[in-house]
Each structure stands twice: as structure tokens, then as C-alpha cells.
Amino acid sequence: MTRFVYATATTLDGFLADADNSLDWLFAVEGGEESLSGLAEFTAGVGVLVMGSTTYQWVLDHERLLDHPEKWREFYPGMTTFVFSSRDLPVIPGADLTVVSGPVADHLPTILAAAGDKDVWVMGGGDLAGQFTDIGRLDEIMLSVAAVTLGSGAPLLPRRLESDRLRLVHVAQVGQFAELRYQLR
């Protein structure tokens, strides 16, 4: 059965990016490039990647993907990608990528069909993950918590989730990061 998994790195105070949408804080932490130790194993079971427009734009710019589209296939091999956006965005040449707009629920049948029997990686941002939570389709949250605080920025998950909906299923230390996995009920 297809699972929807929000896998991301976050700060101790619950931010994905700083106020300028930068992830420099992540790469400044020792081991930041390898912050999710189980990511390779996780992505092997992923058939679809979903992300918001800010996340997509950051990846596009940071990796210079319009100049080097082959990097996309290296990073996300075999994954169909849906980018949720209310604005026009450039599409990486040769990428199996579709820009969509509107409510997550409207695109759920297409996402599930593309995933087949594999999982869906909800990469971010936090509001997009929250939209999957709102419709009861987020199954797991996989976090790599960095030893840094930002004070403000893009929130991890701008929704209220009570503890009775979250079950801690994994804890590990990877260098300066705490890996946490929660199943949602």
C-alpha cells in the first residue's frame, strides 16, 4: 500500500529554511550533506516525489538544474515529480515532472496512479505536508533534526497535531543530527 512520507531536515526550533528560504544553516552543520542516513534506502521505495514551488525553486537554483538537467535524474532516479504551485515555473528538460495547482485532494488519484505500489515522498515545504495531513493522507514524518536554531523562517509543519495522532517509531543519532520517525494515526 502506498504511504505518504514527509521526509525532511529541520532545526531544533522547527524551521525548514531561514527567512530568506536558504538552507545554508543545514550545510553548515557537520554532516549536513548526509543528514538523513536512511535516505538512500527510503528513496529506493519511492515512486513519486511531491514538493511545493519554493522547495522546487531552491533545488532548481542551488543545483543549477536548468544548466545541468542530468543532475535531476541522478538525485531522483525513476521518480515522477509533482510540483504544487500557483505560479509559472521552469521545467527541467527531460525530467518526469509536472507542475500542478489547486488543492492536493484534486491531484490525489493521479499521484496514487503514478506511485503504483511505491511510496510518495512529500519533500516540502511544511504547508504542503500540512495539506496532505488535512486530508488524512500523511502516513509518516521522517525528520533529521539539526543542532541549530534559526528563530524564524519556513515552519516544519504549520498545523496542530496532538500527541495522540503521532507515534514515535524510530530514534537515532547521526553525528550532530537526531533522526526521528513518527507514524500518523
Rank of each mutant, 00 (worst) to 15 (best):
L157N: 07
D106I: 05
T98D: 11
P93F: 08
L138M: 00
T2D: 08
S101C: 14
A9R: 00
I141L: 15
L89D: 07
D127C: 00
Y182E: 02
A7R: 08
L23N: 04
Q131R: 12
V120H: 11
E74Q: 13
L168M: 15
L161K: 01
A146I: 01
F177Q: 03
G32K: 09
G45M: 11
W25N: 03
F132I: 05
S144A: 15
L157Y: 12
H170G: 10
T55G: 02
P77K: 06
D24M: 05
V120C: 10
F4E: 05
I92T: 06
R137Q: 14
G153S: 08
P90M: 04
M1P: 10
T43R: 15
T11D: 00
Y182P: 05
F27K: 03
L143C: 13
L161A: 07
H170P: 09
V174H: 15
A44V: 03
H62S: 15
L16V: 05
D119L: 12
A28D: 15
S22A: 12
K71C: 02
F177W: 03
H68E: 11
T80S: 14
A178G: 09
V46W: 13
V59G: 02
L12R: 03
D164K: 03
D13R: 02
I92D: 09
E74P: 00
L184Q: 04
E30K: 12
Y6D: 00
A19I: 01
G116K: 10
T149E: 14
S144D: 06
G78D: 10
G153C: 10
L108T: 11
D127I: 04
